[in-house]
Design a protein around this nucleic acid. Structure first.
Lengths: 152, 152
DNA sequence: TGACTCATGTCAGTATTCTGACATAGCTTG
DNA sequence: CAAGCTATGTCAGAATACTGACATGAGTCA
């Protein structure tokens, strides 16, 4: 276990820890969503629509961190199953606003409660100030990563 | 943008921020690894083998946060391309130790440097104490998420 | 106005990862 | 010792997400 630190040390790397935490969160979410017949992307899409009604396919894709092609496939299945409705004509440009149906809203309610309980579990060992720190630190990481991405 | 907070508020949710940060990190890593003909899982596997030579397929899978079936597919391609070698017989049990070849080690060197630069970029806006906080907070999140996963 | 750029929706094909299943090796336990 | 349990490697098929490509609508600018 003692190596001469050539590259990234997985034991102490914040990048690795970030991936580990994200992976654990995703697994925990999948576990509670599975009994509800949902996966994480599914849930993310509905949650986005609940909080920001009328989002377009591309906007939903960005919010759920998938490509717009992937979101397009998902939206079709959600529309087929009666959870969302999409405008048939674009009010402006090509973007088609999407909205939750009552069925979609009902389905989301249980999922949202389940996900919230997972998030509370995740934060159960942290004090309020630590949670504030976490928020600030994560935002800084995101900002730094994106800033240099755009330069390149 | 002002909703009555029924479920998880995406603007302030630490779960969403975690996903966002992880997604940004992954994208940044993919970007620097692509010119080297590697993806993140690819790199993770080689990095794990560099730091812990002789890991088995299942151990590598856990370390890279994928299933052992997925890692098996990856290992086959890495072996075919001459980056790793796998024992043909299990010294104990069924686990087949895997090791980097010189070619694999050479390939990893550039990738490791690229990934390290991404990680430094991610941390560029944080002080040393903040980085310590981040480490402690992420470990706490991971622990809390896993603890209740096993109970269930 | 006309050319250019950008964002969007969508189709098609590919790549990646997952779940399910089976056989085998080692350990534990009655 | 035999049975049960766990971990591993592997095969097959399904689900998921991606890249590439094309057409269209809106804004910019010479």
């Amino acid at each position: 276990m003692s190596q001469e630190e050539v590259g990234v040390d997985l034991e102490t790397s914040l990048g690795y820890l970030l991936k580990e935490a994200s992976s654990a969160l995703r697994a925990a979410m999948e576990e509670v969503l599975r009994p509800l017949g949902m996966n994480v992307t599914h849930y993310s899409c509905l949650e986005l629509l609940a909080q920001r009604p009328g989002l377009s396919n591309s906007e939903l894709a960005r919010g759920a961190f998938v490509t717009r092609q992937t979101m397009n496939v998902l939206l079709k299945s959600l529309e087929r199953d009666g959870y969302v409705t999409r405008a048939t004509e674009a009010p402006v440009g090509k973007a088609l606003p999407t909205r939750l149906t009552p069925a979609g809203r009902r389905s989301l309610e249980k999922a949202s409660a389940a996900v919230r309980s997972v998030e509370l579990r995740m934060l159960s060992g942290l004090t309020a100030p630590e949670q504030s720190d976490a928020s600030r630190i994560l935002r800084s990481m995101i900002h730094s990563l994106r800033a240099d991405n755009e330069e390149a």
